[in-house]
């Protein structure tokens, strides 16, 4: 109970985004929304500014919600473990995503918005084993982002059974794509932090997210897809340990 009160207090005091983060998030949301709505500026080959603007606005809503969930979960987890998270955009990734959108006419979404930086909150880490910033803790914080995005995709998938609109379908597709891109081991994406934090955690995260992405895209029910992807993640995690990690440490 005390830990929950402590976490609630930390969220109240440290959760808010800095002005730089808000500015960076606005830029990233606008760019990614433009990328995912690129091929929807009109009917077929006929350009329509009005339709394009409507689709762009819808894309902004989807991307903003997804980013908010992704970053909030990471932020809450980091506060719970005595760290403060700062999100920074990655302009190379955003510009490259824009170039690829123009080159592929919007058929390829390259979602590389940015990465996280973790700050140590000295007083809030007292009593923790490995007091300072460490790779494992940062890797775990990073891994919560893609998991949250997959859960959001599952939520939208469940919603699509009741309200089947193109907006919900797009939200599912975007969240799946975002989770998959996030888990790639390319600095500064979340996957790179997880990879350097723990190869075992990365093996589970990448297998679980990939399996969830495939199963949520299929016609399986949401519950079955999530449970199956969890077990696929566990099985591949064990196989990774047996066939690689176990041998990697046998001869120092």
């Amino acid at each position: 109970m005390g830990e929950i009160v402590d976490l609630t207090d930390k969220i109240k005091r440290y959760f808010r985004f800095t002005p730089l983060e808000i500015r960076s998030l606005i830029i990233a949301v606008l760019v990614i929304a433009f990328i995912i709505s690129f091929k929807e500026w009109g009917y077929g080959d006929v350009f329509s500014f009005r339709i394009g603007l409507f689709n762009f606005f819808n894309a902004i809503l989807i991307v903003a919600l997804s980013f908010l969930v992704h970053l909030s979960i990471q932020r809450i987890w980091s506060l719970g473990t005595g760290y403060r998270l700062e999100w920074k955009m990655w302009s190379y990734g955003l510009l490259f995503g824009l170039i690829i959108a123009f080159l592929t006419n919007g058929y390829v979404w390259l979602i590389l918005p940015g990465g996280l930086v973790v700050h140590h909150m000295a007083g809030h880490r007292l009593g923790w084993f490995r007091y300072d910033i460490n790779y494992w803790a940062v890797g775990l914080i990073a891994a919560t982002g893609p998991f949250a995005t997959i859960l959001l995709a599952a939520l939208f998938k469940a919603l699509s059974a009741v309200v089947a609109t193109s907006l919900v379908e797009k939200a599912i597709a975007f969240n799946i794509a975002y989770a998959v891109y996030s888990i790639l081991p390319i600095p500064p994406l979340d996957g790179s932090r997880t990879f350097y934090g723990s190869r075992m955690l990365y093996a589970f995260a990448v297998a679980g997210v990939a399996a969830a992405a495939i199963l949520l895209s299929s016609n399986l029910s949401v519950g079955v897809a999530l449970i199956a992807s969890f077990f696929i993640g566990v099985v591949l995690w064990i196989l990774y340990y047996i066939f690689f990690e176990n041998r990697a440490w046998r001869y120092p």
Binding site: K88, M89, W90, Y92, P188
Partner: peptide, 12 residues
């Protein structure tokens, strides 16, 4: 944009 601080992003 970078020099004026409009874009301040992550660096490695």
């Amino acid at each position: 944009l970078c020099n004026k601080g409009y874009i301040r992003d992550i660096s490695f």
